[in-house]
Amino acid sequence: MSRDPGLQPERTRLAWTRTGVAMAANALLLLKAGISGQHAVLFVSAAIVGIVAAAFVAVGDCRSLRLAAAPVAVGTWMMWMVSSVAVMVAASSVCCVVLGMR
């Protein structure tokens, strides 16, 4: 019996890409705040958030390709790790923008 993957790989890729694009938008906002305020910490934060955004898109592509080939179970450690990184990046972005506006 052949496996019908349905739309799971596509949904996975879109979700990871959407998260990466949102993080890239935060990186651009940090970069803009850093340029206008001449704060080095905002430039460094923008670079870190940009790298994490690219990593999210890359992980999403790899994950969707694996899902298209065969079902892969996600461990709870991976879910916690990804969620923690996303929350930390969002919180640091907000802190940097708030501190950069002063």
Score class of each variant (00 low, 15 high):
Met1Arg: 13
Arg3Asn: 08
Gly6Gln: 05
Gln8Phe: 10
Thr12Cys: 07
Leu14His: 01
Trp16His: 08
Thr17Gln: 09
Arg18Phe: 01
Val21His: 03
Val21Met: 03
Val21Ile: 07
Ala22Phe: 00
Met23Val: 07
Ala24Trp: 12
Ala24Ile: 01
Ala25Phe: 04
Leu29Pro: 05
Leu29Glu: 10
Leu29Trp: 14
Leu31Tyr: 15
Lys32Leu: 07
Gly34His: 14
Ile35His: 14
Ser36Glu: 15
Gln38Cys: 06
Ala40Pro: 06
Val41Ala: 10
Val41Ser: 13
Leu42Arg: 05
Phe43Cys: 08
Val44Arg: 15
Val44Asp: 09
Ser45Thr: 13
Ser45His: 14
Ala46Trp: 15
Ala46Gln: 00
Ala47His: 14
Val49Thr: 07
Ala54Val: 11
Ala54Asn: 04
Ala55Gly: 05
Ala55Arg: 13
Val57Ala: 04
Val59Met: 05
Gly60Lys: 01
Gly60Arg: 02
Asp61Ala: 08
Asp61Trp: 12
Asp61Val: 11
Cys62Trp: 14
Arg63Met: 08
Arg63Ala: 10
Arg63Thr: 14
Arg66Met: 10
Leu67Lys: 03
Ala69His: 11
Pro71Tyr: 11
Val72Asn: 02
Ala73Ile: 12
Gly75Ser: 03
Gly75Val: 01
Thr76Leu: 12
Trp77Gly: 02
Trp77Glu: 02
Trp77His: 14
Met78Val: 10
Met79Gln: 06
Met79Cys: 04
Met79Thr: 09
Trp80Cys: 02
Met81Cys: 03
Val82His: 04
Ser84Trp: 03
Val85Ala: 00
Ala86Met: 02
Val87Phe: 02
Val89Phe: 11
Ala90Tyr: 08
Ala91Asn: 02
Ser93Asp: 04
Cys95Phe: 15
Cys95Asp: 09
Val98Thr: 06
